[in-house]
């Protein structure tokens, strides 16, 4: 392995990771500067249950009509995010646990996941460009982030075999992209996962308190029917 690649895989990554973490800490501090809303009403449900339900929403595709109307979108979502997990894991496995990629099956699993995520990325791009409504709301950051992720998956397909002897370019490209990612992500929409817990927490807390979450499907006991809890507090 060349000295350049070695530094790129290690020191450069660590510095970039430290930068991203620092920016995220600042970002979280910024979020916490805003006051959390307070509820002064008696609840009929549990905020905690509501929060748990809201957080689990991602694993309950049937709970949202928008997904029920478009199941393929949910599968795309799962594949795309599995690709993200695979790509991020690869950035740690290659420098710190390279033996894992000596196992052919593991490499294939990673390659298939990344390739599938790549195709989903292309599909998402086509959808974003071809649907007028999505075109209207899409920003340059939306396009750039999607293209970046999709290319990252593609570069990952070639990087995970981790074969320096066959030429270092796939690894150099993969790690150069990782570095760029770590620096760019906190300023882009890709950092949505940082905000996800906030939005889902507050929505879950509110809806749980009011008994809207967990969603009712029919057959639940109505308030007023010996359910004195609902009448008082």
């Amino acid at each position: 392995m060349s000295e350049f690649l070695k530094i790129l895989e290690n020191e450069v990554q660590l510095v970039a990771l430290a930068f991203m973490s620092a920016v995220y800490v600042l970002r979280l501090l910024w979020m916490f500067r805003f006051k959390a809303p307070q509820d002064f009403s008696y609840g009929v449900g549990s905020s905690k249950v509501g929060v748990a339900y809201s957080m689990m929403n991602v694993a309950m595709p049937w709970a949202m009509e928008s997904v029920r109307r478009n199941w393929s979108f949910y599968f795309q979502f799962v594949i795309f995010h599995l690709g993200v997990v695979a790509a991020i894991s690869a950035t740690f496995i290659i420098p710190y646990w390279p033996q894992l990629f000596d196992v052919k099956v593991v490499v294939w699993i990673f390659q298939i996941t990344l390739a599938a995520a790549f195709f989903v990325g292309i599909l998402r791009l086509i959808r974003r460009i071809s649907k007028p409504a999505l075109r209207l709301i899409s920003t340059p950051d939306d396009y750039f982030s999607l293209i970046l992720m999709t290319s990252f998956f593609a570069s990952g397909v070639f990087a995970v075999p981790n074969k320096h002897t066959a030429g270092e370019w796939p690894l150099i490209i993969f790690f150069a992209m990782t570095t760029f990612f770590l620096i760019y992500v906190p300023f882009s929409k890709i950092s949505h996962y940082l905000y996800y817990p906030f939005t889902r927490y507050f929505l879950g807390k509110l809806m749980g308190h009011r008994g809207v979450f967990p969603r009712k499907r029919g057959g639940e006991k109505p308030a007023g029917l010996d359910n004195e809890k609902a009448l008082t507090k």
Binding site: F34, A36, L134, H192, Y195, T199, F202
Partner: peptide
């Protein structure tokens, strides 16, 4: 602005 509103301002992925 409160934390819940700021969450909805920042979290949309379009």
């Amino acid at each position: 602005l409160n934390r819940s509103v700021v969450g909805s301002m920042t979290a949309c992925v379009h």
